[in-house]
Simulated assay, not measured.
Amino acid sequence: MLVIGLISGTSVDGIDAALVEISGSTTDLRVTLIAGETIAYPTALREQILAVCAGAALSIADLAALDDAIAYHFAQAALTIQTGHPAAELIGSHGQTVFHRPAVQGQSSRYRVQTADETRSPHPLGYSLQLGRGDAIAHYTDITTISNFRAADIAVGGQGAPMVSKIDACLFGQPSQSSCVQNIGGIGNLTYLPAIDQQNDWQSEVLGWDTGPGNSLLDLAVQHLSQATKTYDHNGDWAASGQANHSLVDQWLQHPFFHQPPPKSTGRELFGVEYLNQRLVDCRTDGMVEAADILATLTELTAASIAHSYQTFLPNQPDRVLLCGGGSKNQYLKRRIQARIDPIPVLTTDDMGVDADFKEAIAFAVLAYWRLHQIPGNLPAVTGATHPVLSGEINVGR
């Protein structure tokens, strides 16, 4: 079956579109990437999305217009990726996350809304908003579109994230060795795969959670330090020219999120502009003035938070780490992760035959395929949900 996967991550780099041929179900899942492309948002739209993610206020009418605009561009990405190829039968669209509030894990959680204002809900369920309405994508493309993948997991007490761990297990699980599949988008997240015997109850043994900042702080810092002349650190070359302040990194690792046991998830609400500004104050207070040193220190935080998460919460250290997402292209970051977890080899999912740039888009194509075939998409051991659920809402094309 030909399926399109669409996603724009927390870095808001653009829309990743993947045209994928899928067969099988779970343990016999087979995916082949036919075409993959990242399609940039118009500059004004990207700036508006970033502003909303940073907490900018907007009216309900403006929110609806933004939802419509994102859906339109997602639909255009779906049409573009099919050029020169047979038509897809299904679209799985994650949409654009603009707000994520994790599920409350106990009364003391810092995420609980504690207020006497009855318009603010103290409910322990999480909340996650992805814009780019699936019904509009189905209308524009005339292709059945499945979207809003997080909602069903959240409704049964889950974090709604990470959503791709079951797919990671099906694609990368092996009986002979354990792996961590480490996605580095705007936020980092991992899937821990023990040596999987697919004849047993392997799904309960898979673990996963958000590790903390990925590219989000780095991209924001690059824009700030370059006076908006750059949007990201190509290959990590700028950071590599600086000297990281390891004492500051150790101080930053004391943030409660890094010590919160899984299941856990996060986003720009925690590791966004406000957090960056606080870290920049720390740098100035410590006498750091060189942009390259600041960027090297923030890059070190991403590497250190990943290593800390492995060493603190995994039952055993993995035999290998497979990087994916935009951060997998940051060669300096990759070297710093390797240094932090040595001698565990750090590879990418490219080495396993799955394109690291489009692995997340491929995953949402698979989630849509599973939803159509009535196969649950979440892993309760990862998200904290009470039970497996069918992930995604179905919108039939015209």
Rank of each mutant, 00 (worst) to 15 (best):
L248V: 05
V249D: 07
D250Q: 15
Q251D: 14
W252M: 04
W252C: 00
L253W: 15
H255N: 11
P256R: 02
H259D: 10
Q260L: 14
Q260R: 10
P261N: 10
P263A: 14
S265M: 05
T266Y: 07
G267C: 06
G267F: 03
R268P: 02
R268T: 00
L270D: 09
F271R: 04
F271A: 10
V273C: 01
E274R: 11
E274N: 13
E274H: 13
Y275T: 03
Y275F: 13
L276W: 06
N277H: 15
Q278Y: 05
R279P: 05
L280N: 12
V281P: 07
V281Y: 12
D282P: 03
C283Q: 11
R284G: 08
G287P: 13
M288S: 07
V289Y: 11
E290I: 05
A291K: 09
A291E: 11
D293G: 05
I294M: 13
I294W: 05
I294Y: 06
A296K: 00
A296E: 03
L298N: 07
T299I: 02
E300D: 09
L301T: 00
T302M: 09
S305L: 08
S305G: 12
H308Q: 14
H308F: 14
S309D: 09
Y310H: 08
Y310V: 03
Q311I: 06
Q311K: 15
F313A: 04
N316W: 06
P318R: 09
D319R: 08
R320E: 09
V321H: 02
L322R: 15
L323Y: 10
L323I: 12
C324I: 11
G326W: 08
K329H: 14
K329I: 05
K329G: 07
N330Y: 05
N330S: 09
Q331L: 15
Q331F: 10
Y332T: 11
L333D: 08
R335K: 14
R336H: 09
R336S: 06
D342C: 10
D342P: 05
P343S: 12
P343T: 04
P343V: 05
I344A: 05
P345T: 07
L347P: 07
T349E: 13
T349R: 14
D350T: 03
D350G: 09
V354G: 07
V354H: 13
V354M: 11
V354I: 15
F358L: 12
F358S: 10
K359P: 07
K359E: 10
E360C: 02
A363I: 00
F364W: 09
